[in-house]
Write a protein that binds this DNA or RNA. Structure first.
Length: 426
RNA sequence: GUGGCCGUAGCUCAUCAGGCAGAGCGCCGGAUUGUGACUCCGGAGGUGGUGGGUUCAAGACCCAUCGGCCACCCCA
């Protein structure tokens, strides 16, 4: 079966130019916002030793068991395309001793999970994450949540997102709770859905966020995690909610929110939306005070979150958030040999003068009519015209494409002035 | 990984009781040989996702495969 057309790997789509506008806008906004809180960017490799993920995410999680892109390289080492960002970030922090003093870090890039693609779920997807190392107090959580809340506001989606919060306590508290939960659910084994029955032995806490209504009904009578929290966890959680109250950030307490990765303790949170169907989690995170030590570093508390960029972009679309348009300032039109050379020289001068404004040249010749059609289609504010007449008098014509203003034939310097007036009004 | 729906021009979609494929938009050219958007005229573009089967005949029916969508599972 000769495959005629090579196509992208399933679940790993291209982002074509027509779609790239929202990406760039989002990326800039996120970078500025995160760095505005004093977070520093860290750039991490896409591939890590398989062991790193097995040991951090948890051996019995779905991610490690069946979703990782793992391969043996030429040195016989087992490597894995990262399924999430925290593990690699922690590895780097340990390797470069970055947590001697408290650190705020952020990163972005592609993650890989072999799942069946659907809306808001891809095999290669983009995440932006932020992590705080060396801070054991809940002011770190408050800051991270405030940061994300600010982002939703800036993106114009704050009306469509909801913050869910929980504390899953310390390792020992959770172990005790797990016993109680298993004891309770074992009594009602036949009332649980098959998936939950299976998880009773593998990962009982995950039963809590089962979507099965019958299972949820069984859980109504189950022991509650918050009853098992020790003093320190309860105090920290109270301080967290007090901070959010002070900032008027609304949240919903969800004592069945447990999260899928094993390394969390105490705080876990999720920003969700109902606009995107089944894949409603936009951003999620929590505290992981034992992970650094567990991976061989000096015991250092950590908190962080990761957000899924594609999902947020889908939400922007659903909310019809208006995006700033980027259109060319100038489309340059020229005809006739001397005029083309004059144009060539002048548009380079314009680019030096106007910096980041788009100055688009016509390529490949064509009649004036053709070139002006291209100018119009480009969305440019003005067409600058170099023709025989202009060349003869060392001038250029400024033709306004978006307003009723008359076109003018002027000197280069005057043209720059006219363009500056447009730039100011943008 | 499981289940359901879907796959026709660059895009949005028609057609059909199985009889050699169409529209709108977009694109290119012209009316307007130095002036875009509106209008008019003309044109290019499809081995009907791919491979196989049934049939005199298949884009339409059957199977497989690839891809998309939706849900489950899981998660960002």
């Amino acid at each position: 079966m000769p495959e005629k057309v090579l196509q992208a790997v399933r679940g790993m789509p291209d982002v074509v130019p027509a779609q790239v506008g929202p990406w760039q806008w989002f990326e800039r906004l996120v970078r500025d916002t995160i760095q505005g809180y004093g977070y520093q960017e860290i750039r991490l490799p896409i591939i890590e030793p398989t062991q790193l993920f097995a040991r951090s995410i948890g051996e019995v999680t779905d991610i490690v068991e069946k979703e990782m892109y793992t391969f043996i390289d030429r040195n016989e080492d087992s490597l894995t395309l990262r399924p999430e960002g925290t593990a690699g970030c922690v590895r780097a922090v340990i390797q470069h001793n970055l947590a001697i003093t408290p650190q705020r870090l952020w990163y972005s890039g592609p993650m890989f999970r072999h799942e069946r693609p659907q809306k808001g779920r891809l095999r290669q997807f983009q995440q932006v994450g932020a992590e705080v190392f060396g801070i054991a107090t809940p002011d770190a959580e408050i800051e991270l949540i405030a940061l994300t809340a600010r982002l939703w506001h800036l993106l114009g989606v704050s009306g469509s997102v909801k913050l869910e919060l929980n504390s899953i306590g310390s390792v020992t508290a959770r172990a005790q709770y797990k016993l109680a939960l298993v004891a309770y659910l074992s009594e009602r084994l036949d009332e649980l859905d098959p998936d939950s029955q299976r998880r009773l032995t593998t990962n009982p806490l995950r039963i809590l966020d089962s979507k099965n209504p019958d299972t949820q009904r069984v859980l109504d009578g189950a022991p509650v995690l918050s009853d098992y929290l020790d003093e320190a966890s309860s105090t920290a959680f109270r301080q967290l909610t007090e901070g959010l109250d002070a900032l008027s950030i609304p949240y919903v307490l969800n004592n069945r929110l447990v999260r899928g990765l094993d390394y969390y303790n105490d705080t876990v949170f999720e920003w969700t939306t109902t606009e995107l169907g089944a894949q409603g989690t936009l951003c999620a995170g929590g505290r992981y005070d034992s992970l650094v030590g567990q991976l061989g570093g000096k015991p250092t508390p950590g908190v962080g979150f990761a957000m899924g960029v594609e999902r947020i972009l889908l939400l922007l679309e659903a909310c019809q958030t208006p995006l700033p348009k980027i259109e060319p300032l100038v489309f340059a039109v020229a005809a006739g040999k001397p005029a083309e050379l004059a144009c060539l020289i002048d548009i380079e001068r314009l680019r030096s003068h106007f910096g980041s404004a788009q100055i688009v040249a016509n390529l490949g010749g064509g009649s004036f009519r053709t070139q002006l059609k291209r100018a119009d289609k480009s969305g440019a504010h003005v067409a600058l015209i170099w023709g025989e007449t202009e060349a003869a008098q060392g001038a250029v014509t400024v033709k306004y494409l978006r307003t009723e203003q008359e076109q003018q034939t002027v000197t280069y310097d005057q043209a720059v002035e006219l363009l500056e007036r447009i730039v100011i009004n943008l």
